[in-house]
Design a protein around this nucleic acid. Structure first.
Lengths: 239, 239
DNA sequence: CGCTGGATTGACTCGGATCAAGTCGAGTGG
DNA sequence: CCACTCGACTTGATCCGAGTCAATCCAGCG
């Protein structure tokens, strides 16, 4: 049974056997969670760091007028902010999209790990920089891309991120409903549907209730104008 | 002569005299820069961490079609990412908006400082979390706020962030042109102009070539639906 | 004193939202 | 096993916010 968190960090930095052991220990216990569970809510006082071992989640915020904006997706191997414990309260909520498994690491445990294992600290910091790059790329999409490009770009990003810590599969399935896509991209479900139809009639994707499958990744990337640079999948080699 | 970087970090965490001294030493030398200087460009291999001692800057990206998207503003006291040195290459550029002064801290110097001074490390991590919160708030604005609200929200944020590490002034001036506002909010300068006119006729702001002054902050916040929570100006007290 | 780049304003267009009516698939309880 | 229900998806008609295009103004500057 693989641990996608360790897989992901190993991609950034070559971890020592010690470090892998420490990470394995820290993420050994995983709590099962069903879909649509809030892992933490806006206004809550942050608890331990948590890590998605399995299943997808999202960061989101509900506005006073009731509309929702999704700001990030967490997939297996992704963690919430390392230093989340320094905050007085959360400025957004995190909810699971699918069922899955979540590990938690207490603040002191995390601090010790970062202190004693330089490789782990390095890898986690690179992961955090990649997360920030993803947020910035999201802003670029919302500001300066057409709705078709936006949809294609997000699906493309999810495809690349998921396949990385995942076994490569020919047709990849993204467990995201059209409503979630809409709230992530600042559009209406109606218009998302039309853009997806567009991609479907070109045989780039196919759709099922609650998920989207990528049939032709390179065509998708071309529609999106996708450049994976911002994901920083190769960190700088040690100076 | 004040050091706004230290001012800002002191707001997050009570720094010891030692820590203040270390920060003072690290940011003693400031290079003067004129407006519209690229401090670092997309694709560059990152160098030292840098800190805005004086003047404003922005993070931005130019798309293949030539359009620009601004993703963040840096103002006095703000720093680029702490661990920027871990990346193989930059995924965006940073350019000064006004003239100003910039300090740089080498990677090894930074690592030592974070190791030896827990307070500095804490404060910097909180600052980074606030930056991330700001990125997420930006996404919320672009996705789910009307253009008038978006404009008001951004001006409001800049007002709050600037006044914090700044002396409180009644009418605050933001050194941002309408073109920059447009590229930050994913709109056209024409439309920005119309929204600003709207705010001006209500005596909420006033405008000059290249800058905007806030006359009535609370009316502005009310138009924007502004909630400063995401700026995390009060970190959690030590557990 | 003319040049340049921001700011301003009006006329027109169009992408995406809104409104409205379905369809379809997966649970759920009887 | 079937009827019901609920939530996601689909599609068409219409509307409006914001973009586009174009002309002009204006301040600072070489």
């Amino acid at each position: 049974m693989q641990n996608r968190f360790i897989d992901k960090l190993s991609h950034y930095v070559d971890l020592s056997a010690d470090e892998v052991a420490a990470l394995t220990r820290a993420t050994a216990v995983g709590r099962k969670v069903v879909a649509k569970t809030d892992l933490i809510r806006e206004g809550d006082r942050p608890g331990p760091v948590f890590i998605m071992l399995d299943g997808w989640a999202m960061r989101y915020k509900i506005l006073p007028n009731g509309s929702r904006q999704i700001m990030a997706f967490l997939m297996p191997g992704d963690a919430c902010d390392l230093h989340i414990g320094l905050l007085a309260e959360m400025d957004h909520s995190i909810q699971t999209i699918t069922s899955g498994r979540v590990a938690t690491i207490s603040r002191t445990e995390m601090d010790e790990m970062l202190d004693q294992h330089r490789g782990i600290a390095r890898a986690m910091y690179v992961a955090q920089l990649a997360d920030e790059g993803t947020l910035r790329a999201w802003i670029v999409s919302m500001g300066r891309r057409s709705s078709l490009e936006r949809v294609a770009h997000l699906i493309c990003e999810l495809f690349v991120r998921a396949r990385w810590s995942d076994v490569a599969e020919a047709a990849f399935e993204v467990p995201i409903s059209q409503i979630i896509l809409a709230d992530a991209l600042g559009m209406t479900p109606v218009h998302i549907n039309r853009m997806l139809r567009h991609l479907r009639t070109r045989d780039i994707i196919s759709m099922r209730r609650g998920s989207i499958s990528i049939m032709n990744p390179s065509a998708l990337a071309s529609v999106a104008g996708f450049d994976e640079n911002y994901l920083h999948r190769r960190a700088r080699l040690p100076a």
